[in-house]
């Protein structure tokens, strides 16, 4: 099946990186004398990491999608510059800075990271949604109106149906970036795959750094592969 095959390279990459993150492999590679991170705890962290990434990306995706639809409606066109500017600002502020700014307001834990992921994730989805909706041929829209569909039906049954693969592609990019970015949350006290990286940096234990990095990248490629397989191929 074609859609299944699209995800295979990313899946293989994820597997390879997961092997690299295994305690024995990482310790052997780094020639480390210090103890590696146990596999069971790494797996726990991976689950937390995935949950945190989703908690940040899902609201961002929803917001980006809704904003993208609003600014392409006749009534919302005026909002387009404001939405573009807001998304650009959100993208200009690096996640680590958002985390550092959010800790004083929300305290240590999950909240600063979720906020950073949300701000970071809106832009790719917004851009993909607007691009995809604008790529719908005007004739198609006119034809749908001509057969008597209401604006809402045109949006749901024609425009979004045609735009959907591109929108999902934007969501995939946002999710992959979010999984890689979530590691930063460890600096604000959230349990993520960044935790071994931070511990490793503090104790100069490079084995932990390698494990955390490889496991995060493995999770990001796994998310990429799963979404590539879930989304119908465009062509």
């Amino acid at each position: 099946m074609k859609r299944f095959r699209r995800g295979v390279p990313a899946l293989l990459l994820a597997l390879g990186l997961a092997v690299l993150a295994m305690p024995e492999v990482a310790a052997w590679l780094m020639g480390g004398t210090q103890g590696p991170y146990p596999a069971a705890r790494l797996l726990d962290l991976a689950l937390d990491h995935a949950a945190l990434s989703l908690a940040g990306v899902l609201p961002a995706g929803l917001l980006g999608l809704v904003l993208g639809v609003v600014v392409t409606r006749p009534g919302g066109r005026g909002l387009r510059p404001a939405a573009d500017a807001a998304a650009a600002v959100a993208q200009a502020v690096p996640p680590i800075v958002v985390v550092a700014l959010a800790v004083p307001a929300f305290g240590f834990g999950w909240a600063p990271t979720i906020l950073a992921l949300m701000l970071y994730g809106i832009m790719p989805v917004l851009r993909a949604t607007v691009g995809a909706l604008e790529a719908v041929p005007p004739e198609t829209r006119l034809a749908a109106e001509a057969v008597g569909l209401s604006p809402r039906q045109v949006l749901q049954e024609v425009e979004l149906a045609l735009a959907w693969p591109l929108v999902l592609d934007g969501l995939r990019v946002a999710l992959v970036l979010a999984v890689a970015t979530t590691a930063v949350g460890a600096l604000a006290g959230a349990a993520t795959l960044g935790t071994p990286i931070v511990i490793g940096l503090q104790n100069q234990n490079q084995v932990l750094v390698l494990q955390g990095a490889a496991a995060t990248a493995a999770l990001a490629f796994l998310a990429d592969a799963l979404l590539l397989m879930a989304v119908p191929a465009r062509d």
């Binding site: 992959v176 890689a180 930063v184 960044g194 940096l201 750094v209 990095a213 990248a217």
Partner: peptide, 15 residues
Amino acid sequence: VQVVPAIALFALLIP
């Protein structure tokens, strides 16, 4: 490269 978490790349460059 973009998928490698930034803190990890910074840290791994040291060894």
